[in-house]
Design a protein around this nucleic acid. Structure first.
Lengths: 247, 247
DNA sequence: CGAGCTTTTGAACGCAGTCAACAATTGTGG
DNA sequence: CCACAATTGTTGACTGCGTTCAAAAGCTCG
C-alpha cells in the first residue's frame, strides 16, 4: 500500500491521466523530467514563507501539509497533500511563496526545476492545462475548507475532513477495506480543523463512540461510509475527480 | 471613482499589465475578445453550484462574492471580487462549478466565451501564464482566509478583512483618502467572517470605538492604517501585488 | 526502564451564538 | 413628498460550544 515503488514520472502520469488522455509523447516528456529525490523527516520544512524557490516538489511517498502561522504563533494547516501531488506548483508563477510546507510524517519528495517544467509546458500546451487544472482543484479544496471551518461545528467538521481523506486516498489507491493510514497527531488534527487540541480529542472520541470512525495507531477505519458522509455533510463534487468520487 | 468607464479589454489589460509586460499584439488580442455585457441586480446568481458554463464572467463594475452553503443553509462567503477580476476563471478547466457567485450590489459584468479565451491562450502562451497566475492569487487569498477564519478571533479577523479590502481596492484605484465603498450588509459581513450577524455588529462597533474604522452608509474610512494593520495581523505578501501593497 | 511525546480527563472560564424585541434606515407607491 | 413597508442595524438576556490550564495516564523508543 505504499506509493513509493513508482518512478516520479509515472506517478504524475497516473494522476494527470485520470482526467486527461495523454499522448505517448507527452507521457515520455513527463518521464524524462529530471527529478532530484530526497527523503525528509517530519517537521523539516520543505519550503518556507518568503522563499523564492526555483523548483517544485512532487510528493512521492508520505504526506505533507501546507500551513501558515499567525503572528502570535497559532498554526493553521491549509492543505494536506498525498503522493502524486505538487504542493508548491503555484511557485511556477508566483515569485514568493506565501506559506510553508512540511512533511507530517517521514516522506519522500522529488524536486523538479521550474525551467524543466516550463519547458515541457511550452512544448506540450495540454500539459500546461493539466498542471493548471491541478492548481484549480487545490483552490477548490481551499474553498470547501473555508466553508467547513467557517460554518460547520466541530463534530461535522471532523467528519467532513475524514470523508475527504478517504475519498482522495481511494483515488490514489491508498485505501484498503475502508482503512487508511493517517500519521497525524491530534495536535495536527486540531491545526487542520482550527480547534484546540483538547477539543479535537473530545470530538474524535464522540465520533468513535457514534461508530463513525475507528482508530488504531495511525490507522483509521471508516465502518459506515453513509453515516460519516451524512455527519460531515460531504459531497465530493469539489474534488473534481470526474469519475465518481462516491460509491 | 467608478471603474465602469473603461472598456472590458482595457480593464483586463490594466490588471494583467501591473505584473506582466504585454506586447501590443497581446493587448490587441485582449481588446478584440468578444464580450457580452450585462447589468445585474444584487443577489441574482451569476453562476450556481453544479453549473457547466461555457463562458467566464469579468467584473466590470461593482462587487461580486463567491459563496457556498451547508446543507442546513448556513452561508460562507469564500471570496470577494472587484472590477477587473474573473471570479469563475476556474471553469476554463473544471467542467463543473463547485460554488455559486452573486453580485453583492448591483453590478456590471462581461461574459467571455471559453472558446475565445482558449483561443487567445493558444496563440499567446504568455497570456495563459497571466491568467493562470490570476487563479493562483485567488488561491493564495483562500489560504490567508483559512488562517484568518481558523485561527484569528473575530476582532482581529474583521480588521484583517478590512486591511485586505483597502489594499486590493487601492490596487484598482477605488480608494480615495483612505476611504472606499463597501456596499455590504452586516449579514454579509458575518458570512464573510464566519460569525453570526449579531456578533459581526458588535465587533464592528468595537472597531469603531477603537478608532480603527469609520463608516457612513456604505462608505468605509480607515483613519489609522498602522493600527488597523496591527490589529489585523496583516501582511500583504499573500496578495502578490509585487509593487508594494503597503506604504 | 525511564524520558519525552501524545492522549485523555476535569474544571472553570469566555467568546460567540441564539432568540427576541426595538430603532434606524432605505425603498416604494400613492 | 409623505406614509408605510421592508430591510438593516442595535441592544439585552441567556445559553452553549469550545478554550485554557493543569494534571494524569498511555505510548514509543532509545
Amino acid at each position: 500500500m505504499t506509493a513509493g515503488s513508482h518512478s516520479p514520472g509515472t506517478l504524475m502520469i497516473r494522476k494527470l491521466e485520470s482526467i486527461f488522455h495523454l499522448s505517448d509523447e507527452e507521457k515520455q516528456a513527463l518521464r524524462d523530467l529530471p527529478v532530484q529525490v530526497a527523503n525528509l523527516k517530519a517537521d523539516q520544512d520543505i519550503v518556507r514563507l518568503g522563499d523564492r524557490p526555483s523548483q517544485c516538489c512532487l510528493i512521492l511517498n508520505g504526506f505533507t501539509c501546507v500551513y501558515k502561522l499567525t503572528s502570535d504563533g497559532k498554526r493553521q494547516i491549509l492543505a494536506l497533500h498525498v503522493p502524486g501531488d505538487i504542493p508548491d506548483l503555484q511557485s511556477l508563477h508566483l515569485r514568493v511563496i506565501d506559506n510553508s510546507i512540511a512533511p507530517i510524517s517521514p516522506c519522500t519528495v522529488g524536486f523538479i526545476q521550474h525551467k524543466d517544467l516550463r519547458n515541457v509546458c511550452e512544448r506540450y500546451p495540454r500539459l500546461t492545462a493539466a498542471f493548471w487544472r491541478e492548481t484549480l482543484v487545490d483552490a477548490s479544496i481551499f474553498r470547501e475548507w473555508l466553508l467547513n471551518i467557517g460554518r460547520r461545528e466541530s463534530y461535522s467538521r471532523m467528519a467532513h475532513l475524514l470523508c475527504e481523506l478517504l475519498t482522495r486516498l481511494k483515488a490514489v489507491k491508498l485505501v484498503e477495506n475502508d482503512m487508511f493510514d493517517l500519521p497525524v497527531t491530534q495536535a495536527e488534527l486540531a491545526d487542520l480543523l482550527g480547534t484546540s487540541t483538547v477539543h479535537a480529542n473530545r470530538v474524535l472520541q464522540v465520533l468513535r463512540a457514534d461508530g463513525l470512525v475507528q482508530t488504531k495507531g495511525a490507522q483509521v477505519t471508516i465502518p459506515d461510509w453513509q453515516k460519516l458522509k451524512d455527519a460531515g455533510d460531504f459531497d465530493p463534487l469539489y474534488l473534481h475527480l470526474e469519475r465518481s468520487g462516491a460509491e
